[in-house]
Write a protein that binds this DNA or RNA. Structure first.
Lengths: 234, 234
DNA sequence: AAGTCTATCAAACGTTTGTTTGAAAGGAAC
DNA sequence: GTTCCTTTCAAACAAACGTTTGATAGACTT
């Protein structure tokens, strides 16, 4: 990977993520990257190809920063679900140092473009497969559609704390009710879902040693985990 | 309301909803509305004010089409939750005749603009209050934050079938696993949430007469309830 | 040392953008 | 019929956009 291309992709992320594709100008991106105006056309052909590359770049960055947990094999399904939820929240709901990785990917999810298929294949599919295997183990004998719906319920709970953030902040006002740590959030979603499935949530709550280990690893890698306020513009 | 303004707002909805604010041109909107190019500047000042008006217009349209249920008072909390979920899904997850109402509002939710505060006040807040009262009745004695988290879990499940639709279609491929009716979806989310809360889901499932009545009313008002594929462009 | 390929640069290109302008048209009031 | 106010219209405006151009400099090959 050329150095100029890296600089362009890094500079493009926040600009594509914040005001969107159309509002982002190649002039601003190039200026931010410290390159010439013609650099994008030269290296990527045109703006649209460059955007697709930026989405892939964001997906790689997001996966590198918060990798999927690799289970040793002796965790219970409940523990694995808790770890999955925690990982997912750290990927999408938490603003890490460069916050635009997740922002750009979430934009791609709601407003899919040409980059969507690849995004699903590289980023979404692995998470989906992992969750489906956990859910299948938690509710054996159920139909595939019921497991699919259950997975959708779990994912929806996680994603809501990204997509609904602006509205929830507006809704909560000065109340501290929406101010909650990622760990508490993961615990709630896990217990909520386990109770819904019918498994014993309290049973899973007792032995979460593996969760604590991974949580520490994520904390160390990502530094600040607090939520940020966001207010967009037109 | 002037007739020209109505025509402009109606024409603007799908154009603002589909490619977004920046990509929408006043020329195309005016041409679609059959008005002169200067009409938007004349009646609304500038494009940004006009966009805010379009969002308000969409919110009114969406609330008129799928009004909140007015409970007679003798429904159980479980029935009320089921009705609420069904209403919410019909508002956000289903593409009605003019599909752009919900599209524009969901865009406003994820990418908030100046129109967000008013959108929350008029559209989101009433739904939130209703859900919170139901949840409070379902889990008495719990802290406000736990009720808030529970409400977020329920709302997140509903919204996911709008925000995650493109990705879920891509994920499901040719499989029919993601092809599900709104009624079945509402039933799943309601049972899932009731089980999570700890209330008896089967108890609520037995007597859903009020639900059936309202569902018929919604069906009659909205006609086609099937999901639509959507594939965006840059 | 001459030739070749690649990357960068300032400048300019043609288009499209939101907005403004001044004239023209339509009523309502008197 | 004259005046006044609102609305519509075609035309033009300046600004910003993505992209292209031709020149320049450097690195590598022969």
């Amino acid at each position: 990977m050329d150095e100029t291309q890296s600089k362009l992709l890094d500079a493009a992320g926040p600009i594509f993520a914040e005001p969107g594709y159309r509002a982002a100008t190649v002039r601003e991106i190039c200026q931010q990257a410290g390159t010439n105006l013609a650099a994008i056309s030269y290296h990527f052909g045109d703006k649209e190809n460059f955007y697709v590359a930026a989405v892939q770049h964001a997906a790689r960055g997001c996966m590198d920063r918060v990798p999927l947990p690799d289970f040793s094999g002796n965790e219970t399904a409940e523990e694995r679900l808790h770890l999955f939820v925690l990982t997912m929240l750290n990927r999408v709901a938490v603003d890490h140092d460069p916050a635009w990785h997740a922002q750009l990917l979430m934009r791609e999810m709601v407003l899919p473009t040409r980059a969507c298929a690849e995004f699903v294949r590289d980023y979404v599919r692995p998470m989906h497969d992992m969750l489906m295997s956990i859910v299948s183990e938690l509710m054996p004998g159920e139909s595939e559609q019921r497991r699919w719906l259950t997975a959708a319920s779990i994912v929806g709970q996680c994603l809501h704390h990204r997509f609904g953030r602006a509205v929830m902040n507006e809704l909560a006002g000065d109340s501290l009710v929406a101010d909650i740590s990622v760990d508490a959030l993961a615990r709630h979603i896990t217990e909520f879902s386990l109770a819904a499935i019918g498994a014993s949530a309290s049973e899973a709550d007792g032995r979460l040693t593996a969760v604590k280990k991974t949580r520490r690893r994520i904390d160390a890698a990502s530094g600040e985990l607090k939520f940020q306020k966001q207010r967009g513009s037109l």
